[in-house]
Every structure is written in structure tokens, then in C-alpha cells.
Simulated scan of single mutants.
Amino acid sequence: MSTAPPSPATWPDWSGPTEHCMPPQGSAGSAAALDWLEALGERQGWPTRTRMALALCADEALANIALHARTPAGAPAQRWLSCGPTAAGLALCIEDDGLPFDPTTQPSPELADSLDEMAIGGHGLRLMRHYLHQLLYQRTSERNRLLLEVAWPQTP
């Protein structure tokens, strides 16, 4: 998986039509966005593992945006979602109008020997890095853009 800052060559192009969603702000908006993503996956017949991996990673990203992202004026950030096919599989682009924040530059915490020793925070990024083909970030037009790309399962 790539977590390097994207160049135009690594940020994938859509290879087909995209679907769009603008959920309300806050945790209710996160739930609405996940419902939209689930319905989209069912309607388009995505493989179950692909649908589950993308939903799990989207849930993590959307929850963090709802919890932490704020506009320069201090208001909760608005989110916009686009989802569609790429050459490698399927991607979800999550945009928000919050202050700049690149999660791809954040390290994953060290794994602890026990739950008592585990550091709080950062494990969602570890999960995303595990399940995604690519996790990319851009800052464009005063928006954070996070791309979650899953690869289609290989057929024998």
C-alpha cells in the first residue's frame, strides 16, 4: 500500500461513472454516508469483502472527520463523498472543508504486548493501511481530499 504524498501519476483517475453524496455534519452524517455507501455497493454488486473493507475504512475516516475536522471559523467541517471504479479496483474520495490535515503522514503506534500497555489512538490508520490498496491525501481548493482505494479480488 502506498501512503506517500500523491503525485498526479499516483492519484488514480476514475475509470467509470462516479456516485456522489453530501451527508449532513456530525455523527448522523457519518451514519448516512455509510448507509449510502452500503446501498451503492449492493446496487452495483461489489464483492462482499470489498464492500466490507471499504465500509470499515470509510467509517474510520468519517468518524475522525466528524470528531476533529473544523473550518477556519471553528465550525464542524462539511463532507463530500465520491465513489467509483479505478484501474486497480474501487475508490472512495472523502473531501472536507476543515483545516489542512494529512492523515497519511501520521505514524501507526507500536503494537503493545497487552491491552493495558496499548497506546490510545492511531490504530484506525493501521487498520486502513492493512485493508486498502492505497490511502492518499491531497489538499486542493481549500479542501482535504482523502482517497481510499480497494483492489478488486483476484479471480483464479
Rank of each mutant, 00 (worst) to 15 (best):
L111K: 15
P156V: 12
D113T: 15
A73T: 04
L127Q: 00
A61S: 10
P47A: 12
A32N: 00
L62F: 06
A69K: 11
L127K: 00
T71C: 06
T86W: 00
L37G: 10
M128L: 12
D116N: 11
Q154L: 13
A87P: 00
V150L: 13
A53R: 15
A119H: 07
I120D: 10
A53W: 07
P8R: 02
P12E: 06
L37C: 12
H68C: 01
N144R: 07
R79Q: 09
S141P: 04
R70D: 04
P76R: 01
L127T: 13
F101K: 06
V150T: 15
G16Y: 01
D116C: 07
W11N: 05
R49F: 05
L92E: 05
P12K: 02
E110V: 06
L99Q: 11
L99Y: 00
L90F: 05
D113M: 14
L135E: 00
D13N: 04
R70H: 07
L147W: 03
A77F: 02
R51H: 07
E42Y: 04
L54I: 14
G26N: 07
R51D: 01
M52F: 04
Q78V: 02
A77R: 02
L99G: 01
G124P: 00
D13A: 06
M52I: 09
P72H: 09
R139Y: 08
R126I: 01
T104E: 08
N64T: 07
Q154P: 03
S15T: 15
Y131D: 02
